[in-house]
């Protein structure tokens, strides 16, 4: 399969990049990326991956668009209020690029369905907003051997890391288990600046594209932190832990599990 004339024009600005080219574009067009959470992180990631011509984009989210989402979840518009997020995200992706096949999963990702879901994809983007989901996605991707991008945001800060299961540190290597409920505030309580989600979500999209293209230098074995106030990016090296409960030598987690921990609730304070 070769690129059509329209595709050559559409992707011309990235086709001329040495690291992309015609072969790279073919890779992107046959690539499959799953985005879990069509929110602050998932919105920019989905928009840019669609524009770049990722052949299959999966979107998982069980929520409907709410007016409080529109400050940062830029894939959803005012006219989408009340609509399932997977539907408005899918509509926007299709409107940007008819080359993209969109698959929607309008249900809650949980231990019972996460393995099957991630196995269908080459790369997974964690755009969820709670620790239960972030640990679930880490465990599932490690167990199913699916590379993924983890990220988190809060207030004026964000961080992300890319995990190549078995080859680089996983989320649990660094953050062994979810913090106790109430120890860490979430965005609803503590707030978040919309473009901060945009910065981190875009970085996740870049990681997905680099992975599909086979470009070196992923954010593996490193946590990239971003603080918008002093405007500071830092890369903190991390390592795979031999005693990691999921990717270590003698793992105790051998199947994904649902956490019974409620999404933390407290007044935001650091």
């Amino acid at each position: 399969m070769s690129l059509t004339e329209q595709q050559i024009l559409r992707y011309s600005r990235q086709l001329i990049l040495e690291q992309v080219g015609g072969r790279g574009q073919q890779r992107l067009l046959s690539g499959k990326v799953l985005i879990i959470g069509a929110g602050g992180l998932g919105s920019p990631a989905a928009l840019y991956l669609a524009a770049a011509g990722i052949g299959t984009i999966g979107i998982a989210d069980c929520d409907n668009v709410d007016i409080t989402n529109l400050q940062r979840q830029v894939i959803h518009h005012a006219e989408d209020l009340g609509r399932p997020k997977v539907e408005s995200a899918a509509a926007r992706i299709r409107a940007i690029n008819p080359d993209v096949r969109v698959r929607t999963y309008g249900f809650r990702v949980c231990a019972a369905n996460v393995m099957e879901l991630v196995r269908d994809y080459d790369f997974v983007i964690d755009g969820t907003d709670n620790f239960a989901a972030k640990f679930l996605i880490n465990d599932a991707c490690v167990l199913a051997n699916r590379p993924f991008s983890h990220a988190g945001i809060l207030r004026f800060e964000g961080q992300l890391m890319t995990i190549l299961p078995g080859r680089s540190a996983c989320y649990r290597c660094v953050f062994r288990q979810p913090p106790p409920a109430g120890a860490v505030p979430n965005c609803a309580q503590a707030g978040v600046l919309g473009p901060v989600a945009g910065v981190i979500g875009c970085l996740q999209a870049i990681e997905a594209i680099k992975f599909l293209l086979g470009i070196e230098g992923l954010l593996t074995d490193v946590i990239l932190t971003y603080n918008a106030l002093p405007v500071e990016f830092r890369k903190i090296p991390v390592h795979q832990m031999a005693d990691c409960p999921v990717c270590g030598k003698d793992p105790v987690i051998t199947a994904p599990m649902d956490s019974d921990q409620p999404i933390c609730d407290m007044e935001g304070s650091k």
Binding site: G37, G39, G40, L41, G42, D63, N69, Q73, D126, G127, T128, D129, N130, F131, K134, A151, G152, I153, L154, E157, G158, Q159, V174, F175, P179, A183, V184, N186, C187, A190, V192, A197, I223, I236, V238, C264
Partner: peptide, 11 residues
């Protein structure tokens, strides 16, 4: 020393 903060937000 690095303090790595839990950051659970995303939506």
């Amino acid at each position: 020393v690095e303090f790595l903060y839990f950051m659970g937000g995303g939506a």
